[in-house]
Simulated assay, not measured.
Amino acid sequence: MQHWIALFLEQLKATTWLEWAAVILGVAEVLLARANKVWLYPTGIAATLISVYLLLKVALYAECLLNGYYVVMSVYGWYHWIKKRGQPPVKVAYANRREWITTLLIVFAGWGLLYWLLVSFTQSTVPLWDAWVSSTAWAGMWLLARRKIENWVLLNISNLFAIPLLYHKDLAMFAVLTLILFIVAIFGYYDWRKIIINERLSNQDA
């Protein structure tokens, strides 16, 4: 335990202002998502672009590609959430059968593809684990873009596996951040559930 505390404090001292900006914007993105605010997308895009720059500096090219996916999904989600030609914004809802099929395809096809890429083109020591964390996060981002409540479940599956992975890689600070995001996502799920329940009650009263 003392080792992890010392490691965390060491990383805290070495953190640059750009890293702090990425972390703060990343937390803000999740809090805005929990509050069901469309501003989560420009905030998330800013955090991701900073992360891409930092990852390029340390030559983590595979991670840059993953973050590029987050940017694309954030732009898609931003567009999907806002009003289009006078139509109301997309409402929070549960995923239907077709969306669940797409979600599972993203998880398992993405897991296999990322595993192959990591094994074939990188020196990753944990390709299976790393690929799973990323593929479940991919699926969660897709569901978030469509305002489906299950996005919190997929994102937290990713977070649950990411926390020990980050500790395994001696990234204590990012493991703690992921733990915070895990807790926020739990509250996000119940907040969105209240939105769905209130919407159903409103429709019954109408």
Results as ranks from 00 to 15, higher is better:
R85N: 15
H80G: 00
E99H: 04
E99I: 02
L55D: 03
E63M: 07
I106D: 06
L49D: 00
K91V: 07
V107E: 10
E99G: 06
W78Q: 06
Y94A: 10
V38A: 14
N67Q: 13
K91W: 03
Y61Q: 04
R85F: 11
T122Q: 11
L56N: 09
I101G: 08
L113T: 09
A46G: 03
Y79I: 12
G86N: 02
C64Y: 02
A59R: 12
Y115P: 00
M73N: 09
K91Y: 03
H80A: 15
P89M: 04
Y94K: 10
W81G: 03
I82N: 11
M73T: 08
R98I: 11
P89A: 07
W100G: 10
E63I: 01
V75K: 05
V52G: 01
E63R: 07
V107C: 15
P42Q: 04
L117M: 14
S74G: 05
G110N: 07
R85H: 13
H80F: 07
Y61R: 02
M73R: 06
G112S: 07
T122G: 11
V72Y: 06
G112N: 06
Y70C: 07
V38Q: 12
P88A: 11
V75A: 15
L105G: 13
L60P: 01
L54C: 04
V71N: 08
A109S: 14
M73C: 05
Y94T: 01
W39Y: 14
E99T: 08
L114Q: 07
L65G: 13
T122A: 10
W39T: 01
T103E: 10
L60S: 08
L40S: 11
W116K: 09
G86Q: 02
L66R: 09
G68L: 06
V52K: 01
T122W: 05
V71D: 05
V90E: 15
G86P: 01
H80K: 13
L55E: 06
L105W: 11
T122N: 11
L114P: 00
G77Q: 03
A109H: 04
L114W: 14
W39H: 10
K57Y: 03
L54R: 06
T48I: 03
W78L: 05
A46H: 02
Q87C: 02
Y53A: 13
G86W: 02
R97E: 09
K91M: 11
G68P: 03
V38L: 14
A93D: 13
G86H: 03
L117S: 10
K57S: 14
V52D: 09
Y79L: 12
V92R: 08
N67I: 01
W100L: 12
L60I: 04
T103A: 15
G68N: 04
M73A: 12
I101N: 05
G86A: 02
L60D: 06
V71R: 09
R97A: 15
L54F: 01
I82Y: 10
G110W: 07
Y69C: 11
V119D: 12
T43V: 13
W116A: 14
N96M: 06
